[in-house]
Design a protein around this nucleic acid. Sequence first.
DNA 1: CTGAAAGCGCTTACAG
DNA 2: CTGAAAGCGCTTACAG
Lengths: 339, 339
Amino acid sequence: MADHYTIYDIAAEAGVSIATVSRVMRGEASVSPKTRAKVDAVISRLNYRPSSIARGMTSKTTNALGILLPKLLNPNYAMIFTGANDAARRRGYSMTLFPWHSITGQQEHQTLALAERRLDGVIICVEYMPDNEREQFLTDLKKLRQYMPIVLIGCVPRTYDFPAISYNMAGIVRESVSALIGLGHRRIALVGGMESDRDELRRDVGYQECLKDARLPYVSSYRVFCGGRVEDGEAAFDSMLSGLQKNFWPTAVVALNDLVAMGCAAAARRHGLSIPGDISVLGCDNIFCAPYLTPPLASIDMHQQQLGARAVELLLSGENIREEAQWEMIMRGSVAPCR
Amino acid sequence: MADHYTIYDIAAEAGVSIATVSRVMRGEASVSPKTRAKVDAVISRLNYRPSSIARGMTSKTTNALGILLPKLLNPNYAMIFTGANDAARRRGYSMTLFPWHSITGQQEHQTLALAERRLDGVIICVEYMPDNEREQFLTDLKKLRQYMPIVLIGCVPRTYDFPAISYNMAGIVRESVSALIGLGHRRIALVGGMESDRDELRRDVGYQECLKDARLPYVSSYRVFCGGRVEDGEAAFDSMLSGLQKNFWPTAVVALNDLVAMGCAAAARRHGLSIPGDISVLGCDNIFCAPYLTPPLASIDMHQQQLGARAVELLLSGENIREEAQWEMIMRGSVAPCR
DNA sequence: CTGAAAGCGCTTACAG
DNA sequence: CTGAAAGCGCTTACAG
């Protein structure tokens, strides 16, 4: 390293001006074949590569996009990234991944840190957010917008005036719970999410509406909050079951995501329940391993790759549109009629 | 966007020179409290954020590292990224992920494209490589090295003179197959990898050595090559079973990775085999869902987070060391004695 | 403690 | 078709 050449070295070596080297590098037509050949020879002999950062200095555009995602430990986010990355490449942009340090806290630092990069745009995946952080986050987004276009994806509060592709969590849970009610279930648990989340599209809204429509009671014991990992779901559901007499155990559980669903399934089995005989389990995200679990895990396919790709399009279009992400229920063996 | 301010705007607004603004931004001590307060006020009023690219222009260092990984669809790579990213942050560096477009082809383009970024270093994950591409790849690496320090991880050929943390695939397979032989298995399949790979650390070497030591025949029907996804393993193992009389079916299978192992298990079940009763399955990488499969999938834990973190240390140390990655066999219900 | 000035490595009008 | 020169937005000796 460090022993690389600059445009001056190439120009000197080839006996031309740096402007000419620049033209050759950029493939401009206005260079004589002879000169081009001479310069090209030097470039490849010395392995010259222009500095994208010097380039960015002058050209005001970097052909680089960014995407801010929660930690990749959930394969779900890897899919979003893949979709976005592929779409960006097709349009001639690079896509850089920035993982959130944590969902809450120090977001000011993180969101605004992006402003220092001169990206041509950034996609930000919004997760559950406690009510008290929402204001600050919005402020940061507005500041960041001074520096680059932004597209939000995920659980985007309705009040945010940004181009966005949002998940209608309420709608998803409504359909999930309806399906289970349709199968005869009456005691349906909902596991995952943050209690402090007050968005009107959050899962709880759909859950409660749906119970109400079916004239079923809202039983707060059936609603537990937890993080998004397998262990979180396992611990949360374990303690729900431990805290209830067997004849009050839920006969179905809707989980925040597939990881949490896997945890719920493990906890249920530990308590002697069989799936789906004793309890149905419905996840969300349809991660790659869902069909390979025993029984195969029913889930909601969020079309993550499409989502990522669409976010890139939206970002590059510059339009201030708000869309809703597509999704699709995938029924599998982990869900069965209530017996 | 585009309506952001530069250091000149701040200087003018605060009535100081740009040098002073720079000093305030960088937190230098040699600024009077009064001046600092005045400048800080303007900075926060205008949401000024310095351009990291202009900064990189002058300071010759970007505090940015990169990591080149295969597509993230295997959670394994997400773990490596997470480990590397966390370690980088602790040392004050950012970590940018570059996914390989594909394992083979257009690598020239990709590897060298990195040279244009002025990163302070890059970690490159090397996957199986056909013999005929190895030379070209090495050439590219040498060119890239002119621009930034490199650390290689993964299946790194012994002949490469680069700092590296390599997987001893031969050793891993040797131990896997030994363990199965110790459990009484005699017909052991190996699924995954590329036939054209000729590295001396590749799986096949360990496989063949181990069979030889146990004076077992090398049965080429038990060795199938395939890609790294679940479907690949499923198709490959399905056709192996379909092509053999039942009494020659393997009683154990060692898979390239856990995804391929999941595919093998699915194919085995489709052929009426139970796991581990009729056939043992051993994966590799110990991805998060391995313990939640039925039966739980035995695997090799590659300590990916540690690997990623160690690669960052090595990169920043500047030492030209070659290490071997740690690993550990995790026995689970998918492996049992041969009956 | 503060400022004027040079320089980082490119691109891009502007001349010729 | 080619070159001299200005400029991108910072940092950093060098003076004072």
